[in-house]
Simulated scan of single mutants.
Amino acid sequence: MDRLLMFIATGAYSGYLPKAPGTWGSAVGVLIWLLLNRLGTIPYISVIGTLFVIGIFSAGAAEKIVDRPDPGIVVIDEIVGLLIALSLAPAHPAAVFAGFCLFRFFDIWKPFPVNWIDCHLHGGLGIMLDDVVAGLYALLVLELGLWLIRML
């Protein structure tokens, strides 16, 4: 069971890739988005919700397995956050790239309340929730940018 939990929590082991596991996890999120982006709104949101719940349990278990709080190898949170950031994005490479960059920006910068969640909520829920909020910030900025481009 530990292997399955670690497989999920580490984004199919992408969290073990060198240098920037969060960026690798976000890249896995893009690959998943490519598979899901044509599902329609209800199924897409259902997948995100399911991954969020599974992520809470697998990320919390991964903390215990590696005996470290919020270990860097856990990237299921980046996958869910990226899926949120791209949830309304058109299937255009520039929009996907912008959403990816915006999500990484907000995930690293951690503006309020992302930083508060990161510091005050622990366990699987804390691991997941800060990236959900970073994904929401990226979604809002991406949609604002796309709206402005359409207005030009």
Rank of each mutant, 00 (worst) to 15 (best):
M1Q: 13
D2K: 14
D2C: 00
R3K: 15
Y16M: 14
L17R: 01
P18E: 07
K19R: 15
A20L: 08
G25N: 10
V28T: 11
V28H: 02
G29N: 01
V30S: 02
L31R: 00
W33L: 08
R38V: 00
R38A: 03
L39H: 03
T41P: 00
V47I: 15
I48A: 03
I48C: 12
G49M: 14
G49S: 14
F52N: 06
V53Y: 09
V53I: 15
I54Y: 10
F57G: 05
F57C: 03
S58V: 07
S58R: 03
S58L: 02
A59I: 06
A61C: 01
A62L: 07
I65Y: 05
I65M: 06
I65V: 14
I65S: 05
D67R: 14
V74H: 02
V75Y: 04
I76Y: 03
I79L: 01
V80I: 11
V80K: 09
G81M: 04
G81D: 05
L86F: 08
A89G: 12
A91L: 09
A94R: 09
F97N: 01
A98R: 04
G99L: 10
F100S: 12
C101M: 15
F105Q: 10
D107P: 10
D107R: 03
F112W: 15
W116Y: 14
W116G: 05
D118V: 07
C119K: 15
C119R: 15
H122T: 13
I127R: 07
I127F: 04
I127T: 12
L129V: 12
V132G: 07
V133M: 06
A138L: 11
A138K: 11
L142S: 02
L144C: 12
L144D: 00
G145V: 10
W147N: 08
L148V: 14
